[in-house]
Amino acid sequence: MNPSRYSDSEIDTVYRVIRERRDMRHFRPDPIDSALLERLLQAAHLAPSVGFMQPWRFIRITDRSLRARVHALVDAERRRTALALGERQDEFMRLKVEGILDCGEVLVAALMDGRERHVFGRRTMPDMDLASVACAIQNLWLAARAEGIGMGWVSLFDPQALGQLLRLPPGARPVAVLCLGQVDSFHEKPMLEQEGWASRQSLNEMLFENGWGDEKLQDSGAAG
């Protein structure tokens, strides 16, 4: 027996929260308890980071007028995205893509400034700082789902415009607008799958062995 292994029920819970995490857009305006928000942010702060650089920074938006200005930037990019989608423009515009004005809390996750001084693990792959921030966001997302709190990741914005609005220092960059709040229910499937925008691909289509495109692994049945 592996002494480091969790109990079956604990393992089931880990897989359950991964399976049931959802990108939420519909929220109730109820506030999030301050102790709960602290727990969620602590979960984010426990994320792994390359070279232990901890490049994440979180900005809590508590000013309602500032929240409205963030929303305006997102809505402007939403319309530009719709135009870029061509024939799917109308379909996209019918989707609810954010809940910034509705949710209990809005956070902006950003990359810190001065990242160039961190070379460990980034000399040939400097974008690992972004990967580290994504890990922090995922931690926050999973913790929120376990607590019964909905979260939505919004990426429809001009980073330079949002950075100026939030007075980010030179070199820092916003990565995500995060909506958190109480929800009536969680979707059984990802919202975009439910709405027919896209469907989840098979793992076998994305799993190779020893080289890109080599299908021996799935042919052998090892991929399940």
Rank of each mutant, 00 (worst) to 15 (best):
M1H: 01
N2F: 07
N2K: 07
N2M: 08
S7I: 03
S9C: 10
E10N: 04
I11V: 14
D12P: 01
V14E: 03
V14Q: 06
V14K: 02
R16G: 02
I18V: 11
R19M: 06
R19S: 10
E20M: 06
E20V: 13
D23A: 13
M24N: 10
R25Y: 14
R25M: 14
F27S: 03
F27V: 04
R28Y: 10
S34C: 08
L37F: 13
A43K: 00
H45N: 15
L46E: 12
A47R: 09
A47Y: 13
S49M: 11
Q54G: 09
P55C: 09
W56S: 11
R57C: 06
R57F: 07
F58T: 03
R60H: 09
R60N: 06
I61A: 03
I61G: 02
T62E: 00
R67L: 01
R69Q: 14
L73C: 09
E77K: 08
E77N: 07
R78H: 13
A82M: 07
A84M: 04
E87V: 12
Q89D: 03
D90W: 02
D90F: 02
E91H: 13
E91M: 15
L95E: 06
I100S: 05
L101Y: 00
D102P: 01
C103G: 05
G104A: 07
E105Q: 04
L107T: 05
V108E: 15
R115M: 15
E116G: 12
V119C: 07
F120A: 12
G121I: 06
R123T: 10
R123M: 09
T124W: 03
M125W: 12
D127Q: 13
D127T: 07
D127S: 12
D127R: 14
M128R: 12
M128N: 14
D129P: 15
L130I: 04
A131F: 15
V133E: 03
V133L: 05
V133H: 10
C135A: 15
C135N: 09
C135E: 07
C135H: 11
A136H: 10
I137N: 01
I137T: 01
W141C: 00
W141Y: 01
A143N: 04
A144L: 11
G152F: 01
V154G: 06
S155F: 09
S155K: 08
F157E: 04
D158R: 04
A161Q: 12
L166D: 02
R167F: 03
P169H: 05
P169I: 07
P170Y: 03
P170D: 08
V177E: 12
C179E: 15
C179V: 06
Q182G: 00
V183D: 12
D184H: 11
D184L: 10
H187I: 00
P190W: 12
P190K: 11
Q194W: 04
G196A: 02
A198C: 13
A198P: 06
L203W: 05
L203Q: 04
E205Y: 00
E205M: 02
M206S: 12
L207C: 11
F208R: 02
N210M: 00
N210A: 08
G211D: 10
G211A: 15
G211P: 09
W212E: 06
K216Q: 14
K216V: 13
K216D: 13
G221P: 14
A223W: 01
